[in-house]
Structure formats: structure tokens, C-alpha cells
């Protein structure tokens, strides 16, 4: 069985009485240890799909089976548990807690996993070091640049050692040099630690790091190919 199985996933929003169909029947399986890039034009439904995959949102219809569990049948608290234990999520809009230092933001997933404070602090420091932000540990989000905030969000997603990492345009605010650093980090997590990584990107250069590239157009999978030349 695959780690992720999507069967005919549809998502629509009701807007002024009209059904706005965003996802129009997505079928997809992703194996454990895969590194997948999702590409597609703006508004095609990539983030919507990621939110469903990340157990944050529920599809209007269709089945999502994650690690053998039918997501539809789980309670909000069980979903929270899965998000906490199995998933690291990098949001497109960072979603850091305001008035909370970088290190405390990174600690947050471990707070809800009841990890001891000492261990929490050490792991958070390590994660921030990996994204090159050790010197900014005690800065508040509004004292950080967009790229720095994005890296805090990445640190938060990898800190809990979740087997699944979802990253919605994780390099959107980074310069080329920093983007390469982050992609190297993801590659390392994928190749050496066996984490499954699914990321959304607009850039061919970034997608080139993945070993599978899925293109979404207008809420449907347009192409799903093995990357011929992995970086």
C-alpha cells in the first residue's frame, strides 16, 4: 500500500450560490520516501490540494488514505495528532505566531507533542542552525525578513522529525543561494533520512531536485512524470 492514496478527490467552494470547483477529481499515490514536486499556474489548486494532503482541510468528495488510515473517518483531535506526529507543514504564508520568538515558534510542534523543555530547546536550536538562523533565534517574526521567516517556518516543519514534509513554495521568498541551501537540506532529509517530501513550486530549478514532478492545471493532474535529470 502506498503512503498516500487519493481517490477522485474533489473540492469546491460555494460562492454566491455558485459551485466553484477547484479540484476536479484528483487520483494520486505517493510512496514512502518519494520526493515530489507539484507545479502549476497560480490559482490551479495546488495549495488547496496541499491543505487536504496535510490533513488541514477536508475534500468535498473522494477518499484520502494516509498510511492506511481513511482520513474522512477521523475526529478533529485525531487529525491534530496526525498533523503533529506525521506531518511537517511549510505554509505558503509562513503562519508564524506573532509576538513569539523564532525558537519558540520552532518549539511549538514539540510543545503539543509533550516533549520536555530541555530537549525541545536543543532540537529547535539544531533546526534553526540547519536553516542558517542560529543568530536570529530570539528574534520575533516582525524583526525578521520574509526569507528569514520562511526559514523559521521550514525549521518548524522539520523539527518534529515527521516522516512526511509538505512545503508550499518553501523557496518563494529566498534568493538563489539560500534556495539551493534549503533544497540541499530537503534532499538530505529525503535521501539520507528517508523522509517523504512533497513541495509546491513555480520554479523549474527547484522542481529539478525532486524525483517526480506533477503538473496541475485547473484542478486536474495534467502530467505526472519521473524527473529525467535529478539534481
Amino acid at each position: 500500500m502506498s503512503l498516500i492514496e487519493l481517490h477522485n478527490i474533489k473540492k469546491s467552494y460555494k460562492l454566491d450560490g455558485f459551485d466553484l470547483r477547484i479540484l476536479k477529481g484528483i487520483n494520486l499515490s505517493i510512496e514512502k520516501g518519494e520526493f515530489v514536486a507539484i507545479m502549476g499556474p497560480s490559482g490551479s489548486g495546488k495549495s488547496t490540494l496541499m491543505n487536504i494532503l496535510g490533513c488541514l482541510d477536508t475534500p468535498s468528495s473522494g477518499n484520502y488514505i494516509l498510511d492506511g488510515q481513511n482520513i474522512e473517518k477521523l475526529s478533529p483531535d485525531e487529525l491534530a495528532h496526525i498533523r503533529n506526529q506525521k506531518i511537517g507543514f511549510v505554509f505558503q504564508g509562513f503562519n508564524l505566531l506573532p509576538r513569539t520568538t523564532a525558537i519558540e515558534n520552532v518549539e511549538l510542534p514539540m510543545v503539543y507533542a509533550s516533549v520536555k523543555e530541555e530537549i525541545r530547546k536543543n532540537k529547535a536550536k539544531d533546526a534553526l542552525e540547519k536553516v542558517g538562523l542560529k543568530s536570529r533565534m530570539y528574534h520575533l517574526p516582525n524583526q525578521l525578513s520574509g526569507g528569514q521567516q520562511q526559514r523559521v517556518a521550514i525549521a518548524r516543519a522539520i523539527v518534529n522529525e515527521a516522516p512526511l514534509i509538505f512545503a508550499d513554495e518553501p523557496t518563494g521568498n529566498l534568493d538563489t543561494k539560500m534556495s539551493i541551501e534549503i533544497m540541499k537540506l530537503f534532499t538530505e532529509l529525503n535521501k539520507e533520512m528517508g523522509r517523504t517530501i512533497i513541495l509546491v513550486t513555480h520554479e523549474e530549478d527547484i522542481a529539478a531536485y525532486a524525483d517526480r514532478i506533477i503538473k496541475i492545471v485547473d484542478g486536474e493532474i495534467n502530467s505526472d512524470i519521473k524527473n529525467p535529470q535529478i539534481k
Partner: peptide
């Protein structure tokens, strides 16, 4: 509300 959303997204249960 957003703060609550962030906490929940990251694994806070309703009792948390």
C-alpha cells in the same frame, strides 16, 4: 483566531 489556527495546524488538540 489566526493564532488558534496556527496552533491547531501544528497539532494542538481541542483541549490544548
Amino acid at each position: 483566531t489566526r493564532e488558534i489556527g496556527i496552533r491547531m495546524a501544528i497539532g494542538a488538540k481541542s483541549w490544548d
